[in-house]
Write a protein that binds this DNA or RNA. Sequence first.
DNA 1: GCTATCTTGAAT
DNA 2: TTCAAGATAGCT
Length: 747
Amino acid sequence: MQSVKSLEERPLTSKPAPSGICRVAVPGPFMEPLDYLPPRNSPSPGPGQRVRVGLGRRDVVGVVIDVAGTSTLARERLRPVREVLDDTPLLNPSLLRLLCWSADYYQHPVGEVVQQALPVLLRQGKPARPGRTLCYRLTGTGREQDPATLSRAPRQAALLDALKDCPEGLTPSELESVPPGGWHGPLRALRDKGWVEACERERAPAGTAAVETGPELNLDQTAAVEAVRALFGSFSCHLLQGVTGSGKTEVYLQLICLALDAGQQVLVLVPEIALTPQLVRRFRRRLDTPVAVLHSGLTDRERLDAWLSVRDGHAGVAIGTRSAVYVPWVRPGLIIVDEEHDTSYKQHEGFRYHARDVAVMRARMEEIPILLGSATPSLESLANVARGQYGRSRLTTRAGGASAPRAELLDLRRQTLDEGLSTGLLQRMEQHLAGGAQCLLFLNRRGYAPTLICHVCGWVAECPRCDARMTWHHGDGRIRCHHCGHEKPRPARCPSCGGGLGGLGEGTERVAQALARHFPGVSIGRLDRDSTRRKGSLESVLDDVRSGRHRILVGTQMLAKGHHFPEVSLVGILDADQGLFSADFRAAERMAQLMIQVAGRAGRADRPGEVLIQTHHPDHPLLRTLVEGGYEAFAEAALAERRAAGLPPFAHIALLRAEATAAAAPHDFLQAARAALQALRPDSVDIWGPAPSLMERRAGRYRAQLMLQSASRPALHRALRAWVPELAHLPGARKVRWAVDVDAIEL
DNA sequence: GCTATCTTGAAT
DNA sequence: TTCAAGATAGCT
């Protein structure tokens, strides 16, 4: 383990003059820090230290951003800092800079931005010290046990196995993810045997031993590692484009090891769903350093401890979801963003930042390389490669030499459909099943039928709160709105005419039912949010597919994440048309990414997978390009379309969104906002709207938006900086909930 | 003239 | 965001 130099030992930023004015980021709608006088009886705090200050008639916790000589306000109008909460800076200057950049770029109040980068306990003013948490570890006898002897108690075996990896013990929430279906029982059994004991843990010891070494890298992987290694020590952005199963994670691990050897820390960002216990375990087994995990499932205490262990330089690796991009560190070495195309990196409410983009800026500020990995990179990143801004390495070989699946379009116009399944697809499934293989069907629609309709009068079940139809769920006999969560029992008869009701269209439930009819005796698994709601049920469905019990698996986009099924030889995409004609210009990109990701789940070396895509538009140019040329050809064509239409990444957009229960309020406010913007005469910025949002009414609120578009990023931001601070004072601003969404990804 | 509710402006 | 002063509606 490299020498650990804690933040406390680092030289402080220059000592502020005692008369200096503290500029403090406080929670509230302030685009700039507020000015305070130094505290009366203690030394003046410096940048990065938390302070308690008076704001109105209450006390709030803020962070000193910088110390200035003067204030725009008269000195006697300033209040002194009430209390300094940190002896040393909690956030270092480069992180403060990143936070200020973020606040400006996303036009969000700086105090809210800083606040959201802090663990909850620090936001509340609690001391920045690690706590002690109850955990469980193996006893001496426990360490001598072989999990294999517990074959009759698989959950105990899993627990034992996990505890062996962590000599310092596991906390209850870490145990949560180990065995499927609860850990209390198995843990009790292990404690009764005297193999496990309770203990208190302050933090993981400095040196954890790697218990596994990685496999030999192939040529592509080696080349990728070398390409990124050459970039160490300065800013550079590199795309790792690797088909599913090509071993991107091994490249990450090798690079992490190189950075650790050089005494540096590594930050790894993953999409929400990808941060599985298996991934964390793999990292812990392979790396010679504590691995701090940061995600929303932690308790406040655990989150603070993980955060501090990175900030103090204790953990060499931090792996986390979106908000981890703001974790402070002391020896920045490398940032990795896995599945960089994933839209969950963009926060969809409040401070609407894009963690991947912030990560790139962070790498630039820290002067370190950043690696973006994906099998299906975003068009933004591919455009940056084309412009020469990003480097790129490709991984083309799949594990075990599996070849890429063959894709084919199935023209639905010449097919009879049974519950969304064409004869052509059913026949092909039969062949594959007869050959002993498995089939996987993708339909991005859960429930039984997306519409419940009256066969007599045409009445359809609509959500009372949204401009949307309610989806019929057969399993529990209810109808529910997938947009707001509203649900009720499925009416027995048409409320309008008393006629009989039926389902229009297909969801996964209905397709699974139809498949059961077509393939009697074949076990069918379903993978969607409904079928995996119960804890452990996701794992049990996956196990049943891997063990071969299920021969057919039908599911939603959950299929696209992480699980590989080597025995699957046929992938059916039931409805490719959804993404083709959407009003959202990113729909096609998302559909192509999903299709490629789902297709990537299948196949093995001796039996390449086959992908059948059902469509009513087999001549659609983008779809054809995707099928004939693969994702890269698709991306090239899609980028050409975007360029011709002047859309991102060839233009930059920002949305002003507004919503209210009163139908006219959003439009009126946006109209005023538009006028205000035009009065500023922004240079080279186009204004579109106000226009109703794609689904105008949602959860009882009417929604509308105004779009700003510019080919020039500086021009767009100049306009935003002048305009956004005016918005709150506009007539009607308090009658709506409004938000600025810079680089909006969903329209 | 009273209270309950809404609107508005300000916070350093 | 949170707070409170001022404005307004509805009522006794």
